[in-house]
Design a protein around this nucleic acid. Structure first.
Lengths: 357, 357
DNA sequence: TCCGGTGGTGAAATCGTTTCCACCGGCGTA
DNA sequence: TACGCCGGTGGAAACGATTTCACCACCGGA
């Protein structure tokens, strides 16, 4: 019974029959994996086109033990930083004829292992991931054990056997803090979302502290906000910080998303940005440039980093062992309207607040 | 030679041997697909745990002709609207034990077919996609022919056989325009990025036009901007629109991303937002709420829509045929600082521009 | 007692591909 | 001439699972 055969997809056997050759020859044509006479090649190509044959990826992967697909783990899709990485990753993957499957951890380190486990079940060639802490990560240990190649994006592991594409978070944070110091600020606060739990968060914090220390200034006040919280939450969290006598004049935020929310919160508390309080971000997300005042921040080439990470992973898959294991991308300070010279009357912020609330 | 066998992954055969049963029984335990004695089940479960056995997804899919994976097509990862959809999609997929692979069209309709073709090669159970124009889309025709279930997100096809999850773009656009009319505006411009090429773009435009017509006002001036362009590009494109004598007092933008850029451009042209010109967006992206002034817009539950689309797709896969083919989500007007009453002196904008540039 | 159904099981076919191996000519070289 | 090599080809064995089918043992009812 060749019943309903025309509804079924053609297989390599169908093609072989139509091209009057064996499946082996069809396979050789498709994969350019062996010598084929010009004549046979033409017949096969014709049959492939006529039948619209597309090899079954599961049959291929099963037999060849090679699945041209890459797993990608991001903390979140909605943070423009990771969205940009993902864009770079996926477009590079497409150029290399790779599929990409994605999963988000929602910033929960305890979910990382399960997610990686899920991706591994697909038997991808490799993984690209941004984790909370590349030095304390069960998921990465698992990948090491399984000998599946992977490259970290945005992470900066201390363990030098782990491949990563990142920026010098310490240096960048140091530089932007130094710029604020040069503008006359001397009372700083560092605002972050759980900066202890991510490696890049720690480096950024350390950079800020280092710049202050080098200038002989006291360490920054700390405000640890719920990163996923609303501006209302942030307003509440910031009142303590800004309500005291020694109100900071410069807020260094661990990322742009947070900085935008903080800027909004600070304004509702009656301070002017940047007249009373300067605010700096980190990442250089595009939208922050459209605000008025625009956000001063550290610009990082997130999309290019995603692309580079993918390229590095492809090289690892091909068995190459790049000399350096960590690839640092250049960053750039972007000045913006949220930062200005420190107020000459250092109590101005407080006065203003007292009169407006 | 059982050489290096311990480095290889265990197969169902390995498990069967260790559990002293046949592969068939192991399969029955794993998939709960047949009767198994309590004793055998225990032995298998123990062996699975000890060997850390994870069935090979390609072997499974090949034989069972069912691959628990969903393909997702978005125009772009970096637009928060689609990033949110994707978040809703992926988290719902995870709950349903589905993998997700993603691809972006970069807003190029001519790439849609090739991308869908690539996804189909993976033999997914179904697809979720946001295309430019759901009524004129080779990719969707292809899916119909291949009888692969799919659900559109954000699209609003006229063809009622196509499943979709969207908002009433026409109504929402009408309502936000009406709100501006109620605030006294009577000279409108509609600003969009290639609104002719997307179905939702057309509906939004039509909604704006309808509101004006109903109020007896002339149709809006048109500005078609390069959606991917920079604020500088937009500034250039807007000078013609705002340079004439009859400067519009209200700009209705086809989406928030554009609205933010337009707001920035309008300001650099010397107009005040909202004193001279009111600006309304569409989508309700979170970041636009943090700006000062905050963006007036139509809030749409993008993440929930992604989740709902995924749920609908899962039902389609299970063979259900929901009564309605299009699921409309409620929208909500969000007032914001970028919109105010129309300036009483309708030439104020021009005068101000003349003095400040 | 016999018969039909059902729980429990394994052997073997099958999914669609790649890859190993054997084979056949023809050609250049010793 | 004999030998080896290489381009070209097909048969058949994998790959790792699911699924069909047959079978056995047991139980309840006729």
């Amino acid at each position: 019974m060749t019943h309903a055969r025309n509804l079924d997809r053609p297989t390599i056997g169908t093609v072989a029959r139509q091209a009057r050759c064996s499946p082996a020859t069809v396979s050789r044509v498709i994969n350019a994996s062996g010598p084929v006479s010009a004549d046979a090649r033409a017949r096969v190509e014709r049959a492939v086109a006529e039948l619209r044959f597309r090899p079954d990826v599961h049959g291929q992967s099963l037999r060849s033990r090679r699945y041209r697909a890459i797993g990608v783990v991001v903390p979140s899709y909605t943070n423009p930083v990771f969205a940009n990485s993902l864009a770079g990753i996926e477009s590079t993957a497409r150029d290399a004829a790779r599929m990409v499957f994605t999963a988000a951890t929602d910033y929960a380190p305890e979910r990382e292992l399960a997610i990686v486990e899920g991706l591994l079940a697909q038997r991808p060639e490799g993984l690209l991931l941004t984790v909370a802490d590349a030095d304390r990560c069960e998921a990465l240990d698992r990948l090491d054990r399984a000998r599946v190649p992977y490259v970290l994006v945005h992470n900066h592991p201390a363990d030098s056997r782990r491949h990563a594409v990142a920026v010098d978070n310490f240096g960048a944070s140091r530089d932007i803090t130094a710029a604020l110091i040069a503008a006359g600020h001397c009372r700083f606060a560092y605002v972050s979302g759980s900066f202890r739990t991510t490696d890049r968060g720690r480096r950024r914090f350390d950079g800020c502290v280092a710049a202050l220390a080098q200038a002989g200034l006291p360490p920054p006040a700390l405000a640890e906000l719920d990163y996923m919280g609303s501006p209302q939450d942030h307003r509440r969290d910031l009142t303590a910080l800004l309500g005291g006598g020694e109100t900071p004049t410069a807020l260094v935020c661990s990322n742009d998303h947070l900085a935008l929310s903080v800027a909004a919160a600070v304004r509702t508390l009656g301070f002017s940005v940047p007249d009373d309080i300067s605010i700096a971000g980190f990442d250089g997300i595009a939208i922050a440039r459209l605000m008025t005042p625009s956000l001063a921040t550290v610009e990082t080439p997130t999309q290019a980093m995603g692309a580079a990470a993918m390229q590095r992973l492809l090289r690892l898959i091909d068995g190459e062992r790049p000399a350096a294991t960590v690839e640092l991308f250049p960053y750039q300070l972007r000045s913006g309207g949220t930062c200005s010279a420190a107020p000459s009357d250092q109590t101005g912020g407080e006065r203003r607040r007292a009169t407006t609330t």
